[in-house]
């Protein structure tokens, strides 16, 4: 009888469940130190005038938040809209490139070859994004590999051309660097689709196109949406590619924020620009989900 009381006694009820809390500590630390704390710090900075020491000292100042909308020529709004638009186009292009690959790897290839393909797809991403962007610059620049190929080897063109610093090169490099982020969630949702369902659809009279639209695409939709959000947010927030590849005509919203922080060394204004961008981008994602009748919960939980 004594042993019955050992594990469920009333004295234990008020204690902190350490067995649950301890494994959560790394997650809580990560959330707090890398997500919550920096954003709170940004929020505080954005609510202060330049040079102000603390919120207690000079009170709350909202002027920084008006600045983005008061730029000459509505620069911020125009850059923001272009960033969103280009990111959307790029995300669609990435989807068009990634989906067939994801389908091929998930449903067509079997066994060891599948593993090898996945490794090959992921391998370039072991290298830093900076190095990969420089590699592309080497390919695309006036004295680069592509010009060498077209002018000196194939003799298609008589003069080398500068492929860098335009919108097309921006998309090429963007798609290249986003493919994996789009491919993986689609791959995993297609992986979960049993082959029998495709056979059943075919058995019930569906051709390849009908099988795709009625069975394959709907079941990969959570993956597509997840990939879409990931790639879109990464593109909006990218700094390297627009800066190094896009050239002067493709000013990105991140570059504007960078300029506020580093060029004009106005951290308070930079913080406000960052937070405005964050809120507006989140709104765009929310709107996109609403328009396609989806929920975040549906995307990131199973079924």
């Amino acid at each position: 009888m004594k042993s019955l009381h050992r594990s469920g006694g009333p004295r234990q009820k008020s204690r902190i469940p350490w067995d649950l809390v301890i494994p959560l500590i790394p997650l809580l630390l990560w959330l707090f130190l890398l997500l919550i704390f920096p954003h709170l710090r940004l929020l505080m900075l954005s609510l202060m005038k330049r040079g102000q020491k603390s919120l207690a000292e000079g009170g709350i100042f909202l002027g920084n938040y008006l600045k983005p909308f008061q730029d000459p020529d509505h620069l911020f709004i125009r850059v923001f809209i272009r960033t969103i638009l280009f990111s959307l186009i790029n995300t669609l292009l990435t989807l068009a490139v990634a989906y067939p690959i994801a389908f091929y790897v998930a449903k067509v290839v079997k066994g060891m070859r599948k593993f090898v393909l996945l490794v090959l797809i992921a391998l370039p991403y072991y290298i830093s994004e900076l190095v990969r962007v420089y590699a592309w610059m080497n390919i695309l620049r006036e004295t680069g590999f592509l010009n060498y190929l077209l002018v000196d080897v194939l003799h298609v063109m008589s003069q080398p051309v500068e492929f860098l610093y335009n919108t097309a090169s921006l998309f090429v490099v963007f798609v290249y660097s986003s493919v994996l982020l789009m491919l993986m969630p689609i791959y995993s949702s297609l992986e979960g689709l049993p082959d029998e369902q495709l056979q059943a659809a075919q058995d019930l009279g569906a051709g390849p196109l009908a099988t795709f639209t009625h069975i394959v695409f709907p079941s990969s939709l959570p993956g597509v949406t997840a990939g879409f959000i990931l790639v879109f947010m990464m593109n909006v927030g990218d700094y390297l590619i627009p800066n190094l590849i896009g050239g002067k005509n493709n000013l990105w919203v991140t570059e504007m924020i960078y300029n506020r922080f580093i060029v004009s060394t106005n951290w308070n204004l930079g913080a406000a620009y960052s937070l405005v961008t964050l809120v507006l981008t989140t709104f765009v994602v929310w709107l996109g989900l609403r328009l396609t009748g989806q929920t975040l919960r549906g995307v990131f939980s199973e079924q």
Binding site: P194, E196, Q199, A200, Q202, D203, G205, G207, H214
Partner: peptide
């Protein structure tokens, strides 16, 4: 299969979830 006058009940049923 989509042009044969037979239909199949699969072992794992393969209903469209």
């Amino acid at each position: 299969p989509n042009h044969r006058p037979v239909n199949m009940v699969f072992q794992q049923l393969a209903l469209f979830p």
